[in-house]
Amino acid sequence: MVNYSFLCVYLFDFQIVNVNFIISLQLFFSYFKDLVGREVTVELKNDLAIRGTLHSVDQYLNIKLENTRVVDQEKFPHMLSVRNCFIRGSVVRYVQLPPEGVDIELLHDATRREARGG
């Protein structure tokens, strides 16, 4: 097995206060799993942004979307017809989450715990 550790970084408000947290893979993986069924937007490194319902996510953060639509339809007209797609985790630049699907406190606490070494 390859060792997949995950890293999470916050930068705070232009000061030189930087807090680095290590987040375990498990945390993020399960975090994404909890978002299954929600609407997310995935932006790829080639600038294509696809919005859709999160169908599934695996340990490599490969993402399957359903009911997809392309955010910038003029630039990527050929993707219009696609209703479901599989996106390789390595080409994902951003995942935009639904605000209601984000439990800031939970994430905050979890990262804190991780930063303290568990």
Partner: peptide, 14 residues
């Protein structure tokens, strides 16, 4: 190298 794959069914796209 396959970044993305999908089923495309819209005759306008292809």
């Amino acid at each position: 190298s396959v970044s993305l794959h999908a089923v495309s069914r819209d005759p306008e796209a292809f």
